[in-house]
């Protein structure tokens, strides 16, 4: 079986290599790319993101990847958003209210309560609320690494498949059809995180 081709969208922000390397480790033919043709040919697409919401949206649009994201989502192929890559899928963020999000998922990204230190920069356990292919073979409460000061509040609570407790119940994983997204960094979450990426790669293999 050939390795699934996974396009990791490269729009020039921060450390994207970790996600790329982790996907390769878990069996993907992962490519860092902004080539719309390559993304269209890929078995799965990953939208990473670090830094500020507005800066990431600007960079994504600057790299002409906004429509590429919408096309990938609409194609039904597995799509994974990570951290700010998850937040960008929503309509807007309180971090940069003047920037429009991708609007793939309904809802806003809101600040973590001021009662706790920000960013949440730590490992935390996931409270899993629904079965998902991302969690196949994982412990009941996986431990994963978070770095964020904002978290999504989806309009439809049914898309929330996992939360974590940090000042409030924060959205940690959302799923809507072929789109799955994690607020935490699976590529930095040791064995549990790698297993999730492996499950995503598996789902890409099945999509062909």
């Amino acid at each position: 079986m050939t390795a699934p081709l996974v396009a990791v969208l490269d729009y020039g922000i921060g450390n994207l290599s970790s996600a790329h390397k982790a996907l390769v480790r878990m069996g993907a033919d992962a490519r860092l790319t902004r080539d719309a043709g390559l993304v269209a040919d890929a078995d799965g697409v990953v939208l990473p993101g670090v830094g500020a919401f507005g800066a990431c949206m600007d960079a994504l649009r600057g790299a002409a990847l906004e429509s590429v994201v919408h096309d990938a989502v609409a194609s039904g192929r597995p799509f994974l958003g990570i951290c700010v890559g998850m937040q960008m899928l929503f309509d807007a963020s309180d971090e940069d209210p003047m920037h429009r999000g991708l609007g793939v998922l309904r809802g806003r990204v809101e600040a973590i309560p001021d009662t706790v230190r920000k960013p949440q920069m730590q490992w935390n356990e996931l409270h899993v609320h629904a079965t998902d292919s991302l969690f196949i073979g994982l412990p009941a409460t996986p431990w994963v690494y978070f770095v964020h000061s904002f978290a999504a509040r989806p309009t439809d609570p049914r898309v929330v498949v996992a939360t974590c407790d940090y000042g409030a119940d924060l959205t940690a994983v959302v799923r809507h059809e072929n789109v799955v997204a994690t607020q935490f960094h699976p590529e930095k979450s040791a064995a549990d995180g790698l297993s999730m990426l492996g499950n995503f790669v598996q789902s890409c293999g099945g999509a062909r």
Binding site: V50, G51, M121, H148
Partner: peptide, 14 residues
């Protein structure tokens, strides 16, 4: 300013 520059370019998280 180095702190401001790094945060502005790559985010406070790093």
């Amino acid at each position: 300013e180095l702190v401001s520059e790094i945060a502005a370019e790559f985010g406070v998280q790093c």
